[in-house]
């Protein structure tokens, strides 16, 4: 990893700026930071998880984008550091001060930090094994995926769900890590679009891989729709006041209701209906656009989880979001020394 310098510098600068913003008096505090972290961690961990899953089942399509997805690893560290900034803000969680054995600030911070760091370490181990192409990579992939599931479950149960304590939904964990994989696939969709935007090179293989990914995104849109429905219908049917409150708060006032429909459309209806057509599945630009729509949907959904509970200052959130986005793009654009060779495979 020789050319890490500039990228690290930019990432560090971005991270510092985000940190300053978060700590400054104009900072939106917990809300803004939480939305931004919840969103980007789904993309970063999900991207690597997609690569790991494909390694595990020997899926060939991943070869075209794998080095890029693996390049997301440094972001996991950045996000872990940014997560530390939540520490002073944890008093905004409703369970704060209740003296719970599970929900108290120290344990909250502790278990999440450990999970984040372990996931990062597992990602590092997996990436180095995967880029070298050793036999160890499947083992490393299993370990990474194991930690990925734990980490995303904690994001779901701790970061987001406990905002609504004592409301709970046992599917939140599964829902989040599937969504994170979905986001990882969407990132791969954008990467394919980037690779295939020029038609001059001989890219028959990449095109074939791309078609597999398009089908996979289509499948995931159905899976996502199914999971969403499975959670909704149980709460809707049970109709218990302590459970429906979560949904009622998010559907009974004007902007929230539109947001709810919007993310349903972005994450399910548009990808599903769009990718039904074989022509769309064959067009990198259209699949790229659908991938973007999926990511927008994900962002709206995360906003909708947090907005009714915590105040968000739009400017800070936007600045933090863009800076992390920048770090994300820098990570993706960054070619590590081994990455180039792997891309040829």
């Amino acid at each position: 990893m020789k050319q890490d310098g500039p990228a690290l510098l930019i990432a560090a600068g971005g991270g510092l700026a985000i940190a300053l913003l978060a700590l400054s008096p104009i900072g939106g505090g917990l809300g803004s930071m939480l939305v931004v972290l919840c969103f980007w961690i789904a993309l970063a961990q999900g991207g690597i998880a997609v690569a790991a899953t494909c390694d595990l089942v020997n899926a060939r399509w991943i070869a075209s984008v794998k080095p890029r997805l693996l390049a997301l690893t440094p972001l996991l560290l950045l996000l872990t550091i940014l997560f530390l900034l939540l520490w002073p803000e944890l008093q905004h969680y409703p369970w704060n001060g209740m003296g719970g054995r599970y929900l108290n600030t120290d344990f909250f911070m502790g278990r999440n930090l450990v999970a984040l760091l372990l996931t990062y370490a597992a990602a590092l181990a997996y990436v180095s094994a995967a880029l070298r192409g050793t036999a160890q990579r499947q083992k490393a992939a299993v370990i990474y995926l194991f930690l990925f599931v734990i980490c995303q479950s904690l994001v779901a149960f701790d970061w987001v769900m406990s905002l609504e304590y004592p409301w709970y939904s046992s599917m939140f964990g599964i829902y989040f890590f599937i969504e994170s994989l979905y986001a990882g696939l969407a990132v791969a969709g954008l990467l394919f679009w980037w690779r295939l935007r020029t038609a001059d090179r001989e890219q028959g293989q990449v095109r074939e891989h791309f078609r597999d990914l398009a089908t996979l995104i289509f499948g995931f849109s159905i899976l996502w729709g199914g999971l969403f429905f499975a959670q909704y219908v149980v709460i809707w049917y049970g109709n218990l006041p302590e459970e429906t409150g979560f949904i009622v708060r998010r559907t009974s006032s004007s902007t929230y209701l539109q947001m709810a429909w919007l993310f349903l459309g972005c994450n399910f209806l548009i990808p599903f209906l769009g990718l039904l057509s074989a022509r769309v599945k064959n067009s990198p630009a259209l699949v790229g656009a659908i991938s973007l729509v999926i990511l927008v949907g994900l962002l709206i959904e995360r906003l909708l989880y947090i907005l009714p509970v915590l105040a968000i200052s739009p400017l800070t959130a936007l600045a933090q979001f863009s800076l992390l986005g920048l770090a994300f793009v820098v990570a993706l654009r960054h070619r590590s020394a081994t990455g180039d060779r792997a891309e040829e495979l």
Binding site: F229, Y232, V233, W236, Y237, N239
Partner: peptide
Amino acid sequence: GGKPIVSLPPFLI
């Protein structure tokens, strides 16, 4: 069961 006459979620199934 206290459900609306036209209950879309179950009907969608």
